[in-house]
């Protein structure tokens, strides 16, 4: 009897979670594919929801390039980023703490936490090495950046 209850409960839970989970997986795959066509698909948890909304609202002017997408794709990516944003479910990670609620940071590399972590030494290294190209090229130094591993410096 217990087994049957467990099975029934599991099946019900499966039905409840399968939809959103599948959607999240699809959103993740699409986000990775589209964003990483040009740059590392920066993890959603680096910026608050309001930043992702602002970024995704102006893809034709995306940091000096036109990165426009069909609206359905654009919306799906925004939903995925918003769901995983730094301030999801009331969170307040250390890279957000110095940011006022009415400020909408547009670049991870502009967060005071980021500039503090990287400092002038890294800035100079980037400036000197054309192979790195830009401070936005995380994976040039952080080999696990695509998987969210940044503690290798």
């Amino acid at each position: 009897m217990k087994t049957i209850t467990t099975i029934v409960t599991s099946a019900a839970l499966g039905l409840i979670f399968a939809g959103p989970l599948a959607a999240q997986k699809a959103g993740e795959a699409l986000t990775k594919e589209e964003c990483s066509a040009c740059h590392l698909a920066y993890q959603a948890y680096f910026l608050p929801k309001r930043s992702w909304q602002a970024i995704m609202a102006d893809l034709p002017n995306h940091f000096g390039e036109d990165a426009s997408l069909p609206d359905a794709d654009r919306a799906e990516i925004e939903a995925f980023l918003a769901a995983g944003a730094a301030d999801r479910q009331g969170r307040n990670p250390r890279w957000l703490q110095a940011i006022s609620q009415d400020v909408v940071p547009m670049r991870i590399s502009e967060l005071s936490w980021f500039t503090h972590e990287h400092g002038n030494r890294v800035k100079n290294r980037v400036a000197k090495d054309p192979a790195i190209g830009s401070i936005s090229n995380c994976a040039a130094c952080h080999k696990g950046a695509e998987r969210g591993h940044y503690d290798d410096d």
Partner: peptide, 25 residues
């Protein structure tokens, strides 16, 4: 846009070689 005055800005002029996006990818 000012950062991309030519296709070759990113794709270079040698089509048999890889190019690079403005963030180095």
């Amino acid at each position: 846009k000012p950062d991309s005055p030519s296709c070759s800005t990113c794709h270079t002029k040698d089509m048999r070689k890889p190019g690079a996006t403005r963030v180095g990818k």
